[in-house]
């Protein structure tokens, strides 16, 4: 279940006639969650997801959410994270969060917030990002703009819709944020499909990678030429298992920044053909298992074929951050740590 995917949350609370959707719309200082994080509070008291680090802040939110489930409406809460005693002894990171609380009735066809999230969910299912635009004041309204340019819903005014759609197109690339249109504060909530790990080589490291990927809410596709290795028994957590010529299979995957290709076969028979397909494609991350010496040899071979230093520089090898671990799960951890670092724009 993706943290930001409200439809999954609602499905878990499908017995409840009404729920409160809490969305982190702004954060200053140090917070543990990204803007856009969500929690659904059911009338039955059940909770799914989370918008803050927990503790007292969550308690305030849940209390407010319970009121909204009972009485209706929507509310924007501003909460300080600077608990006084904790601040004195250095046990708080400080900051402020703004959380939008919306009462929604998932089973009612006319509920605009539910409809917006279902439209965004459909876009995500087809592999496209979407932005849901909601006002932070006034009644509930929502406009959805997808990566393919499709629009659903309205904010109630065609000129605001048009201006909001322009900002939404920018937010698709830059991420969620609050912005103002004609004097109204709007939240642009970017929802993106999960990152896809294409794991070439169905060995032990790959097994660990698929298990950890599930926890990190990443899709995993295991690719190998060997039927006896790439099996559901060995990879119960993989979203997809593909047996065939790895370079063919990798070539069929739509390349974009949300795709990370992990070459963990430690076998040039897969690495070279796959790299030839990847080095001029826009995938977000390319990593290859092996020593520095081996990585240099692979680069030399590809350089001879006409690949430039910039293209060859995209290969992260030795793959993963240097955490010092040697076991397959430890290597998998270092690889995923590097993927996350690169995705977050940190130097890896």
């Amino acid at each position: 279940m993706a943290t930001h995917d409200v439809v999954d949350h609602l499905d878990l609370l499908s017995d409840d006639a009404a729920v409160t959707l809490a969305t982190l719309v702004a954060a200053s200082g140090s917070t543990s969650k990204k803007v856009g994080a969500k929690m659904v509070v059911g009338a039955s008291g059940r909770l799914v997801g989370g918008v803050t680090i927990g503790g007292c802040v969550d308690a305030q939110l849940i209390e407010a959410a319970d009121e909204i489930v009972a009485s209706g409406g929507r509310r924007l809460l501003s909460i300080s994270l600077d608990d006084d005693e904790a601040f004195e002894i250095g046990l708080t990171c400080g900051g402020t969060v703004e959380v939008l609380l919306d009462r929604i009735a998932p089973r009612q066809g006319h509920d605009v917030i539910t409809a917006a999230h279902r439209a965004a969910h459909a876009a995500l299912e087809s592999g496209h990002a979407a932005v849901i635009v909601t006002p932070l004041d006034g009644g509930a309204a929502a406009l959805v703009v997808t990566e393919t340019g499709v629009r659903h819903g309205s904010l109630g005014d065609s000129s605001i819709d048009a201006a909001a759609a322009t900002i939404a197109a920018d937010a698709l690339h830059r991420g969620s944020r609050v912005d103002a249109v004609e004097g109204r504060r709007l939240f642009f909530d970017r929802l993106a499909p999960p990152m896809t790990l294409v794991i070439v080589g169905a060995g032990q490291i790959a097994m660990s990678l698929t298990r950890m990927a599930r926890e990190l809410e990443m899709r995993s596709v295991v690719v190998d030429g060997r039927e006896r290795y790439a099996t559901p028994e060995r990879f119960p957590d993989a979203d997809e298992i593909r047996v065939g010529m790895p370079s063919d299979i990798v070539g069929e995957i739509v390349p974009n920044q949300r795709v990370a290709v992990l070459l963990v076969a430690h076998d040039y028979k897969y690495e070279l053909p796959v790299l030839r397909k990847l080095l001029r494609s826009p995938v977000g991350y390319i990593g290859m298992l092996g020593s520095k010496k081996r990585g240099a040899a692979v680069r030399d071979l590809l350089r001879d074929e006409g690949f430039t230093d910039d293209e060859l520089g995209r290969i992260h090898t030795p793959i993963g951050l240097d955490l010092g671990g040697k076991s397959p799960p430890e290597v998998a951890l270092s690889i995923l740590a590097e993927v996350v670092a690169v995705r977050s724009g940190k130097r890896a």
């Binding site: 060997r226 290795y229 010529m245 076969a265 076998d267 897969y270």
Partner: peptide, 13 residues
């Protein structure tokens, strides 16, 4: 035609 060595992983068409 496509052929494979299932254990070592060679694949050729």
């Amino acid at each position: 035609a496509e052929g494979a060595n299932p254990l070592c992983g060679d694949r050729i068409r």
